[in-house]
Every structure is written in structure tokens, then in C-alpha cells.
Design a protein around this nucleic acid. Structure first.
Length: 909
RNA sequence: GGGCGGUUAGCUCAGUUGGUUAGAGCGUCACAUUGACAUUGUGAAGGUCAGAGGUUCGACUCCUCUACCGCCCACCA
């Protein structure tokens, strides 16, 4: 039999173990023959841009934990992996590459550019696949998807066409957030705000003074808005007059609306419908024309007269110069701070401008959904409890976000992505102006038969395709058809949708999670998942978001795994982490869990050494009759089996209820503090525990497997190879991989409260003696004597004498049978019925006295308030009986202890 | 401006419906090389649970206010 190395070397095993898992086929639930109930997770597809970071590692760990746990519990566990084409992000990366080569995308055709991006994305995808494997992720690679693959593209077109025909997708002229660098629209939540200090100009506009940071947008302002109740301007309302302005006089008129804030600036403002969201809404309300002053490149249009073609932002000062020369600048506040809108990708200031774009209408009533809108359906899914969000404070955030939701602008002026399935029969080409929405390019216009049709150049917002992720990956739309007003699912879609859990970062709750809910409610009339579990961000030890710019605190999973092992990284992302809270990750933490992995390894090694014993005293492979010879369990056996049952119960419950950190912590405590520190030590003196040890090992390997799949599998395979007789494999008792080993079930019969209490006494006794030894400076190698007194528990002490002697390092242990207690000994109060005496000589008498006095003081300090409480009639009236009894009992114990201590103090004099 | 959350040991965090002397990991200190493990063992020190008030027989836990910190949303011409 091969021996295990002294320390666990993760790098030596991990890749081979993963290959074996993959080869076993059990990542695919179709192979889990006996499993019935599904458990599904759609992996949030990482952007196909480069490499995985700690945030990805976090999601992989949590999801794999759930998947492995549920697979071992006999569920049909499916984890669908995939990647997202991430249109803007991918295009930006490639544009940066091009810039290095000194070219831009305009130096090549659209097709060439896309081919270039596809090449980049394909490389990234293969890198990412490998990295997902490195983490030990047990996802079903046979079902891997990509947002741009054929099936998903088909799903995207299908839902676009259906939503369009239901009137949920429309084309409209709206103000959009425009990034002049990305040359694309941005969704509301793709716009970020940055505080900026900029001059605030007060300009004379006819009879009023208006304020602005952006004078370059003001060329066409011709409407003054004042508050209807503002006494300063009442007389002006409704009037029209000529105003001297940037490019000569303009015809202005005055309207009254409550949006004007009387307390801000002069209380009067002009509006710029083409370049401000609020002004656009006002313009709609009063039917004012919307004109464009700044174009898609950030340059002035012809509306800016002599400034045409110049960059708007750069010419702000020039415009102010013009106004100043005309004496129209009243004053300038140089220290004005405001929030500048910038593109979330590139940081370029965003220009709001009017544009013809495609939108999803979130308020339109849907006939086949009982006249409810996407917004209403999405709110209902969470309100009704069909979807639970963990932690639940995020439900409030979800509601808030949903209530404020505006129509979703889904068209992007990006080359890379899902092209809109929209064709125009353009008048310029001799057509009729018809807009055709169809799967395939139509041969001719259905209306005028014109054959010259233009395919819309735009692509869809990348979140549009990922919003379909849970069901498009399972074969929608082919796997669903509508019959008599109901959706009939088949295949994977029927077997695995709605998915069980959506596990993702809280930062994309609105961007992604909310949109998946909308789309699934629309397409399948059901929720996409039952539970949303949100993890936090991974921060470095200085609470900064991990990024390549902070080299020294950056944790790269791919550096950490070869060094500490994937298992160590996995637990350090689980322990001490609660949903919705950010995780602070430093290398130290990972190292400490590497130590734990090694501990688990050595526990296994210790237990398995008996299996290698050629005399075969108690190897698990021995016959049943031989095993029966040792059937009298000691207190320690009863205790550890009781603790095992309880641990199985509570770890299982914790995992079921998403308390992952708690589950890991309890398991760690049981493994290290109870098995390793106590039971293994005891097994060195109480012989013949091999069966129990071995069965304990098998149980904890299984329990640990979802957390630390690699090390547990290595040990399991070792056992399978070397310990189990081959016949058992054939009977299927020991599956080929721990991955499909049944999850341990607690044997309730072994729960033994009495044993736990009694063992706790033995443990306290040993610890108290150890403590006293340390206080008296007795080196561990030196054995000492102890006298133990007890009135009722003498048999308990006697039964466990060997353990006590060994663990407390005693050479003599005397059990006192009389009331006669020794003088001149260190006194230790263990419990109300156990006392220990260590004859360590009289050197420390004074110290002993001080120590006992301190104990007396502590007890007195506890006793006084307790006595007061028990004397209070209100307490007896108000508190439940068991509390009163408990407190009374506690007081009696304190008093008894005090008496003993005082008696002991007298003896020292 | 609107909303959400946090403040518990040196650090990072648990603390389940109010009920033993408030816990863990890491770190710190002392001792130890005993054949599973120094990636270790044993032991110790360390907290007026942010502050004030209230409810209660009893508050880390429930309520109010204050202070500080963080986040989300909206965004002012």
C-alpha cells in the first residue's frame, strides 16, 4: 500500500483529479440515473474579455458548493456554464489592441473588425474555460453556451420579434445617453457620475439671468421657464420678445411651470430639449421642437451657426468669450461642483442627445399576461414570494429600482453583438419607408415589393441577450410552444426551468437579475429562478476593489491556486463571508486555510495508518464477527458519535438555508477542535477505535467535499484503491468518485446528551489541569500527580482515568473517596461535584491565595445581581418558569462554589 | 434630495423568535520538537456590544434620537 505524503501538495493532484471528474461524466445530470428532483444553476456568464478575477472565483466557489451538495443529496444537479460576448467591453479591448498597432476600426470593414473581435473573444473563452476548471467547478461542459452562439442568437431574434409584435419593443426618437468615444448609446445604468468642479456661468438672457455649466448647448434655447408663483416674473409669463444671443438675436417666449426652482439661481431658466433629459420631457409636455446642437462626434451642428463642425466641449470658453464681448456674462462662479455624467466603460463625459433608437416598453400592458406590464410582472414575482432574494434587504432595493424604471434603450451603435432583426425599405432607395422586423433578411418589401432593403446597423445591448440566459441556454424557443394559452415546455427546458438559484454579485441586481425576471415572465410566464443569492465584492485588505493597479494587494486566483491549492482559496472565500457583504481577501487568509487543508490531510493519514498495519488489528476490511468483539463504546466514542450526528444535522440545515459560512465554520470546528484535538488524541490511549475512526473519516470527507473537493477526493481515491476490498466497488457501495457519494445522514439514535455532558466534564477537568500546569511553569514533558475528588461522579473519573492521565500528563491519579481533602495542594474547582488537587509543593502559596481570592471576587460579582434579581417579585411575576428555575439553580451553584473556595482558602493559611 | 445598510476583541466578522460569565478566525504573548500534522500542540491576554434615552422582571438583540462610516437611486438649470 502506498503511503500518503507528510504534507498535502495540492498542485500535485488537482489537475488530474479534475480530468478524472470530467471523464466520469457526472457533471452531466443525465448520467445521474437515480436522481429525480432537479437542482439547476445558470452560471452567470463571464465576459469573454481576458481572464477570470477574484469576483469570478467567488461565484464559482459558491455555485459549485451548492451544486456538489445537491448532487450528493441525490438531486439532478445541473450547472450550465458559458460566456458573454460583452459587446462594448470586447470591442473596447480590441480597439485598444488596434491603437497599439497604430490603426483604428475605421481602417477596416465592419466584417474585418468583427472577425478581429471574434478571434480575440475565442481566445478569451478558451482561457476562461481552463480557469473555471482550475477552481474545481463541476459544471456540465456538454451544455456550455455562449451568448452569440447560434441557438442563443435565434432566441434573441425570436423574442425581439415577438415583443415587437406585442408592442413591447418600439422605435422612437428620444434623448439618449451618448458616449462620443464609444460612439454608442448607453443605458441609464451604464452612466456613472463623477464629481467635477466647473465654472458656473450666469448669463443675461433678455429680461432674466440664467445659469449653466454647459453654455455650448444653449444656442437654440428659446423658451424661458419660470415658476407660476414667482412674483419676480409673473408679468413675463406668456410674452414673446427678441433676445440678443450667441449667434445674434433669437425669438424667445416665457412659460410657467412648477419645475422651475424659485430658490435656485435667479429662479428662471431656459430649456435645451435636445441635450437634457428633463428639458426633453418639458418640451414634450409643451410641444416644443427638439433640435440637435451637438452631433454624435461631440461637434457642433449647423444649428450652432459659425461654430459648426467644432468640438462643443472644447469651445466652451470661446462661446463665453463671444457672450462676454456682447456684455451678456453677468458673473461666473468658479467653484461650482456638480456631478458629471461619464461612460461606465471609458470614463468619457456623456452627451445627452436626441436619437432614433429602439426601446423596450416596460409599462405597456401585455394581453397574454392579464394586462400587466413587464414592470408589474417583475414586481409581482418578488412581492408574491415566487422569487426570494438573499439577503432580503436587497428586495427593497429591487422594488425601488423597478418602480423608477424607464423604458429600456436596447439599441447600441456597436459593431460586435446581436444585430437587430430589423430591415428598412428606405425612401432613398425608392422604397416606401416600411420597417420590417423578421428573422431572415426579406427578399423584398412586403408592402411595395422593393428589393433594396437596409439591415439596421445597430446591435442589441449586451444585457438583452444575457437577460434570456436561464432559458435560452436550455433550448428556448424550440423547447417551448404555446397551446391553448399555456406554455408547454419540453426537453431540458421542462426538466430544469425555472432554475433553482441565481447566484451573482449584488452590483448587477438591476442590470441583469431584474431583466432576467422581466424576460422570463414574458417568454415563459414563469420566474427564471426561485432564489437569488447575492454575494459581495471582493476587496483587498485595504478595502479597495481589487484591480491590476494595486499590484501588491491583488490576489489573482491563477497565482494563488498553484501556491496554496484551489481548496484553500475556496474556503477562504466562504468562511466569514455573508451574503451581500463585501469580502476582504488577503494572502494570509488563504494561507491559513491551506493549513487547514493540510490538517484534514493529516487527520486522514493518521486514521489510514491503521489500514496499513499488517497485523490488521482492526482494519475496516475485517470480518463482521471480528468487528463485533469490540462493541462496548467508551464515553469518548459515544460523545464523538453524538457530535457527528449533530454536526451532520446542522451542516445540512445550514447549507439548505444558504448559511454557507456557518456550515464551513461548524465543520471546521468539529474536524479540528473535536476530532483532531480530542478524539484522535484519545484514540492513542483507548485502543481499538479503528472502525469508528474510519467511519468518521468517511463521513467528514463527504461533508467537506462540496467545500474542498480536491483534497477530499484524493483521500477518497486512496481509500478506494487501498482499503476497500474490490468486491464492494462492484456492489456499488463505494462510487467511483466522492462527487456522487451519498451525503451523510445523521443517525439520530447516536445523539446522546448525557455522554456530551459527561465528556464536557472530562474535557474541562483536563483543560483546567493543563491550565494550572502552565500557570505553575511545569514543562509539558514533566508528569505530575493529581488527586480528584467527587461525590457522585467517581465512576466517570475512573472509567476515563487513562484519558485524563494521558492528556493532562499525569503519572498518578488518585480518586478521593472521602471528605478528607488534601492540604498544601493547588486546588482546582472543576464543577459543583468535581475538584482536583495538584500537590505541587508550597512554593506558590501566596499566588494560590491571590488566585482563589480573584475567583471568589468574580463569583461574588456574578452572585450579587443574580440575588437581586431573584429577590425581585417582578422577576418572578414576569419571567417564564424555566428561566426562574435556571437562575435559581445557577445561584445555588455559585454559592456552593464559593463555599468550596473559601474552605480552600482557609487551608492555605 | 430620496432610500438602504453598518458601528461587537488589535484586524476581519458571527451572534437565529429578548433569557448561562457575548463567540470564531487571523494576529499578539508564554511554554513545548510527545511518531498524523511546526502548514503543529498546550495555555493565556484582549470587549462599559458607537453614544444617549425609552420599552421590559431582563436588551448586543425591540423602539426613538445623535454621531460617524459605507452603498444604492435621482440629479438642478
Amino acid at each position: 500500500m502506498q503511503e500518503l505524503d507528510k504534507t498535502y501538495n495540492a498542485a500535485q493532484f488537482e489537475d488530474a483529479i479534475y480530468r478524472a471528474w470530467e471523464a466520469s461524466g457526472y457533471f452531466n445530470p443525465d448520467k445521474l440515473a437515480s436522481a429525480k428532483e432537479p437542482f439547476t444553476i445558470s452560471m452567470p456568464p463571464p465576459n469573454a474579455t481576458g481572464t477570470l478575477h477574484t469576483g469570478h472565483a467567488m461565484m464559482l466557489v459558491l455555485q459549485d458548493l451548492m451544486i456538489r451538495f445537491n448532487r450528493m443529496r441525490g438531486k439532478k444537479a445541473l450547472w450550465v456554464p458559458g460566456t458573454d460576448h460583452a459587446s462594448i467591453a470586447s470591442q473596447n479591448k480590441v480597439e485598444k489592441q488596434l491603437a497599439k498597432e497604430g490603426i483604428t476600426r475605421h481602417d477596416m470593414s465592419r466584417e474585418e473588425f468583427i472577425a478581429r473581435i471574434e478571434k480575440y473573444v475565442e481566445e478569451s473563452r478558451s482561457t476562461i474555460r481552463n480557469q473555471i476548471r482550475k477552481m474545481g467547478s463541476s459544471c456540465d461542459w456538454s451544455r456550455e453556451r455562449y451568448t452569440l452562439d447560434e441557438g442563443l442568437s435565434h432566441a434573441v431574434k425570436t423574442i425581439f420579434i415577438r415583443m415587437h409584435s406585442d408592442g413591447l419593443i418600439y422605435r422612437g426618437n428620444r434623448i439618449v445617453n451618448w458616449c462620443p468615444r464609444c460612439k454608442s448609446t448607453l443605458a441609464d445604468d451604464e452612466v456613472k457620475y463623477k464629481e467635477e468642479q466647473a465654472p458656473f456661468y450666469y448669463l443675461k438672457y433678455g429680461p432674466v439671468i440664467i445659469g449653466t455649466v454647459r453654455p455650448e448647448t444653449k444656442f437654440l434655447d428659446k423658451t424661458i421657464v419660470v415658476h407660476p408663483d414667482d412674483p419676480r416674473y409673473k408679468a413675463l409669463i406668456g410674452q414673446e420678445f427678441d433676445v440678443e444671443w450667441i449667434e445674434g438675436p433669437v425669438r424667445a417666449h416665457v412659460i410657467a411651470d412648477a419645475v422651475a426652482d424659485m430658490t435656485f439661481g435667479s429662479g428662471a431658466m431656459t430649456i435645451t430639449p435636445g441635450h437634457s433629459f428633463e428639458d426633453f420631457e418639458l418640451a414634450q409636455k409643451y410641444h416644443l421642437p427638439v433640435e440637435k446642437v451637438i452631433d454624435e462626434d461631440g461637434n457642433f451642428t449647423e444649428a450652432a451657426g459659425s461654430f459648426v463642425g467644432k468640438n462643443a466641449r472644447e469651445n466652451r470658453a470661446a462661446i463665453i468669450d463671444v457672450l462676454r464681448k456682447k456684455g451678456l456674462v453677468d458673473r461666473v462662479d468658479e467653484h461650482y461642483t456638480h456631478n458629471l455624467s461619464v461612460c461606465y466603460r471609458c470614463g468619457t463625459p456623456v452627451d445627452p442627445l436626441p436619437s432614433l433608437q429602439w426601446f423596450v416598453d416596460v409599462d405597456k400592458k401585455i394581453k397574454h399576461r392579464k394586462d400587466k406590464s413587464l414592470k408589474e410582472l417583475s414586481l409581482e414575482a418578488v412581492e408574491s414570494g415566487s422569487i426570494t432574494i438573499i439577503p432580503n434587504q436587497f428586495e427593497k432595493r429591487y422594488f425601488q429600482w423597478m418602480h423608477n424604471l424607464h423604458d429600456w434603450c436596447i439599441s447600441r451603435q456597436i459593431a460586435f453583438g446581436h444585430r437587430l432583426p430589423v430591415y428598412y425599405c428606405e425612401k432613398e432607395g425608392g422604397g416606401c419607408g416600411e420597417t420590417i422586423v423578421a428573422h431572415e433578411p426579406p427578399a423584398h418589401c412586403p408592402k411595395c415589393k422593393n428589393t433594396f432593403l437596409r439591415h439596421d446597423e445597430d446591435t442589441l445591448d449586451t444585457w438583452f441577450s444575457s437577460a434570456l440566459w436561464t432559458f435560452s441556454t436550455l433550448g428556448w424557443p424550440d423547447n417551448a410552444e404555446e397551446k391553448h394559452g399555456n406554455i408547454i415546455k419540453k426537453g431540458d427546458l421542462a426538466a430544469f426551468h425555472p432554475t433553482s438559484v441565481m447566484e451573482t454579485g449584488y452590483d448587477i441586481l438591476p442590470l441583469w437579475v431584474a431583466r432576467m425576471i422581466m424576460m422570463s415572465e414574458y417568454a415563459l410566464r414563469e420566474e427564471p429562478f426561485k432564489t437569488v443569492y447575492l454575494h459581495g465584492l471582493v476587496l483587498d485588505i485595504n478595502r479597495k476593489k481589487m484591480s491590476k493597479s494595486n499590484e501588491e494587494t491583488l490576489i489573482d486566483p491563477l497565482d494563488v491556486i498553484p501556491k496554496y491549492g484551489a481548496d484553500a482559496l475556496r474556503i477562504s472565500m466562504l468562511v466569514g463571508v455573508t451574503p451581500g457583504n463585501d469580502l476582504l481577501l488577503g494572502e494570509e487568509k488563504i494561507a491559513s486555510y491551506r493549513n487547514f487543508i493540510n490538517k484534514l490531510w493529516n487527520i486522514s493519514r493518521f486514521i489510514l495508518q491503521f489500514g496499513m498495519d499488517t497485523s490488521g488489528v482492526d482494519t475496516p476490511g475485517r470480518s463482521d464477527t471480528q468487528k463485533k468483539k469490540r462493541d462496548t463504546h467508551t464515553l469518548a466514542d459515544a460523545w464523538i458519535l453524538s457530535r457527528l450526528a449533530r454536526t451532520i444535522e446542522s451542516v445540512t440545515r445550514a447549507l439548505e438555508t444558504f448559511h454557507f459560512a456557518q456550515a464551513a465554520e461548524e465543520l471546521r470546528a468539529f474536524t479540528w477542535d473535536e476530532i483532531a484535538d480530542w478524539y484522535l488524541e484519545i484514540s492513542k490511549v483507548e485502543k481499538g477505535k479503528h472502525d469508528i475512526l474510519f467511519s468518521l473519516l468517511e463521513k467528514i470527507l463527504a461533508l467537506w467535499h462540496p467545500f474542498t473537493p480536491f483534497v477530499t477526493e484524493v483521500v477518497y481515491q486512496h481509500i478506494r484503491e487501498n482499503v476497500h476490498p474490490k468486491t464492494k466497488h462492484e456492489k456499488g457501495e463505494h462510487p467511483a468518485t466522492l462527487m456522487i457519494h451519498p451525503w451523510p445522514v445523521a443517525d439520530k439514535k447516536t445523539i446522546n446528551e448525557k455522554a456530551e455532558k459527561e465528556f464536557a466534564l472530562i474535557r474541562t477537568l483536563i483543560q483546567t489541569i493543563r491550565n494550572a500546569r502552565a500557570e505553575h511553569g511545569i514543562p509539558p514533558a514533566q508528569k505530575i500527580q493529581a488527586l480528584i475528588w467527587s461525590k457522585r461522579l467517581q465512576p466517570l473519573i475512573a472509567d476515563n482515568e487513562q484519558i485524563i492521565k494521558h492528556l493532562a500528563r499525569l503519572d498518578f491519579l488518585t480518586i478521593l473517596t472521602t471528605e478528607e481533602k488534601p492540604h498544601n495542594a493547588v486546588f482546582l474547582k472543576i464543577s459543583d461535584d468535581i475538584e482536583a488537587y495538584l500537590p505541587l509543593g508550597m512554593r506558590k502559596t501566596e499566588e494560590e491565595r491571590v488566585k482563589i481570592k480573584k475567583e471568589i471576587d468574580t463569583l461574588q460579582g456574578l452572585l450579587t445581581p443574580l440575588n437581586n434579581r431573584l429577590a425581585d417579585q417582578e422577576f418572578h411575576k414576569g419571567a417564564p418558569r424555566h428561566i426562574v428555575e435556571k437562575e435559581t439553580k445557577k445561584r445555588d451553584e455559585y454559592i456552593a462554589s464559593l463555599e468550596t473556595l473559601e474552605e480552600q482558602l482557609k487551608k492555605l493559611i
